[in-house]
């Protein structure tokens, strides 16, 4: 893969995440060596799987590492006291 071509494909992937049905601006997409790393936190496992499906389509052929997390929906265990 040509480096420039990878850059443009990543840019197109980011653009596709931001547009249309996906509307996901909270995923960070970075080149790490010859691989692409996805990081960020999503509201549900379904949303994460959707991102990974699109990544497989848009970035096919580029090794992909995913560290996408699911947001915790538990209440906090203690407050912050603001004095």
């Amino acid at each position: 893969m040509n480096t420039d071509e990878g850059e443009y494909r990543i840019a197109r992937f980011r653009d596709r995440l931001a547009r249309g049905d996906v509307a996901e601006l909270g995923v960070r997409v970075e080149m790490r060596g010859t691989s692409v790393l996805l990081t960020g936190t999503l509201p549900s496992a379904g949303r994460r799987d959707e991102i990974l499906r699109i990544a497989a389509t848009e970035l096919g052929g580029i090794p992909l590492h995913s560290d996408l997390l699911i947001a915790c929906a538990d209440p906090p265990d203690r407050p912050e006291e603001l004095s």
């Binding site: 936190t41 538990d74 006291e81």
Partner: peptide, 13 residues
Amino acid sequence: QPVIGKAFALYHL
């Protein structure tokens, strides 16, 4: 929410 890592943050003001 991705920052606080909970359903909500709680502050005593």
